[in-house]
């Protein structure tokens, strides 16, 4: 079901975007979520769309990968969009049937929400598709460093994040193989009543949790055996380095932001 999903997955490559520092990509992805809201007319959205498309093309992974990968999310987006359709009641009435009233403002709002949602997801997907999960964790640690002063356990949080990210694929594989083993023993997943479906997941979830806990304990032992100690004295094997291309990317993004703000006065 989720085999098409590209959200949260990394695809190796050697594009300019792949080689950008994880911090750059993190900051820009977060900034984009806010910057998109500057668009308030067709030209603004066209500009944001063109910018996203440019970034996607620069990943060298192909636009098709993004479109196919996001297809499973379209349903979710459509539901959100439809809610807008029913809850915005201002503007000219287009359809009025029983308690359902659809207005022009509702339609416009739906389209805007859909486009915004789409752009933000596309842009964040660029980050996850082109950045190794561990680099994302390192990048976050580096960005959160200032908060250490306020007692935030930044290194520990980053370690937890990187371990979690590291084990996501392992757990997925394990879930798949346990599921197969139980199907071979006659469990029918996704068949029958809701109660039967919920019950069918017990033979999957118990071994999955037991193994995950066992693995966590083993990992903890292994780290302790090798003398792991958290804290400030730790150095990194992968050192994040800032390159000219990161500066260029930031400048490019700032130019895009300024242009986007400018479109507000065009129409």
């Amino acid at each position: 079901m989720f085999s098409n999903m590209i959200i949260g997955r990394y695809m190796p490559g050697d594009s300019w975007i792949h080689r950008l520092d994880a911090r750059t990509k993190l900051v820009l992805s977060i900034a984009f979520i806010f910057v998109v809201f500057f668009a308030n007319n067709v030209i603004g959205y066209a500009l944001a769309g063109a910018f996203t498309l440019l970034a996607i093309m620069m990943t060298g992974l192909g636009v098709g990968v993004f479109l196919r990968g996001l297809r499973p999310l379209v349903l979710l987006m459509l539901i959100t969009t439809l809610l807008q359709l029913f809850f915005v009641q201002t503007g000219d009435v287009l359809v009025h049937w029983a308690f359902i009233k659809i207005t022009t403002d509702g339609v416009i709002n739906s389209v805007i929400v859909f486009v915004r949602f789409m752009l933000i997801i596309m842009f964040s997907t660029i980050l996850t598709l082109t950045t190794q999960p561990l680099a994302v964790a390192d990048g976050m640690e580096s960005l959160l460093k200032p908060f250490k002063k306020f007692g935030l356990p930044v290194s520990e949080l980053a370690l937890m994040l990187s371990i979690a990210l590291r084990f996501v694929p392992t757990l997925m594989d394990e879930a798949q193989s346990i599921m197969n083993a139980q199907r071979a023993r006659g469990v029918r997943f996704n068949e029958g009543s809701l109660m039967a479906r919920i019950k069918s997941f017990v033979p999957l979830l118990i071994p999955l949790f037991v193994n995950a806990i066992k693995r966590a304990i083993e990992l903890g032992d292994a780290m302790e055996a090798r003398g792991y100690r958290g804290g400030d004295q730790r150095t990194k094997y992968r050192v994040l380095t800032w390159h000219t291309r990161d500066t260029i990317a930031i400048i490019g993004f700032v130019i895009f932001t300024v242009a986007l703000i400018a479109t507000r006065w065009i129409m």
Partner: peptide
């Protein structure tokens, strides 16, 4: 079918 490392199926 006995899978590789079938002890993972015990629950």
């Amino acid at each position: 079918l006995v899978f590789q490392f079938p002890e993972a199926q015990l629950f």
